[in-house]
């Protein structure tokens, strides 16, 4: 299911921790990076590596918002809805994204290119309004700037 490179990376991560289970979150990130999401089979495999049960892994995965149990778009647009972004016009950015992409938060475009999410504070308050696309931060957003960013994505 996983490439040899990912498996090797996972072994290296597990070896660093004094207690195996501690490697759970970083290992899940490696798997998600490789597969794009975390299907059941992947959780079973992670459970085997860390001497856990499927349920141990599943309950952890469901607690954290950055893990996806279903495939998401190639570009995950995460627009902040918290207070500092709200004060600086964050709502208009979200509305603009909804119009441009034709989807609502929580949805993916039919071509699988974009998933839109509303997220809580991402730590970009002094440069609001802000969003993240996958792991990249975008600050000082305006509708025009959003259009430029979307157009620049490969």
């Amino acid at each position: 299911m996983l490439s040899a490179g990912a498996k090797e990376k996972i072994q290296r991560i597990i070896a660093r921790y004094p207690v195996k289970r501690s490697a759970l979150l970083p290992v899940l990130f490696v798997v998600q990076e490789e597969l794009g999401y975390l299907p059941d089979e992947a959780l079973h495999e992670v459970a085997r590596w860390l001497d856990l049960t499927f349920l141990d892994v599943e309950t952890v995965v469901s607690f954290y918002t950055m893990f996806h149990r279903r495939p998401i778009g190639r570009y995950h647009i995460q627009v902040c809805r918290n207070v500092s972004c709200y004060l600086c016009g964050g709502d208009a950015i979200r509305e603009h994204l909804e119009r441009r992409l034709g989807i609502r938060p929580g949805e993916t475009t039919p071509d699988g290119r974009f998933t839109l999410s509303e997220v809580e504070c991402i730590g970009a308050c002094s440069w609001a309004p802000a969003m993240q696309i996958n792991f990249t931060f975008y600050h000082h957003l305006t509708p025009e700037r959003v259009d430029e960013i979307l157009a620049s994505l490969p």
Partner: peptide, 23 residues
């Protein structure tokens, strides 16, 4: 060690639980 999107993990004991690979 990366967290995975949970404000509560900034609370010190929740953070330790998380670092131990739990909720």
């Amino acid at each position: 060690h990366p967290g995975a999107g949970a404000y509560i993990c900034g609370e010190e004991t929740a953070l330790m639980e998380s670092l131990e690979g739990k909720r």
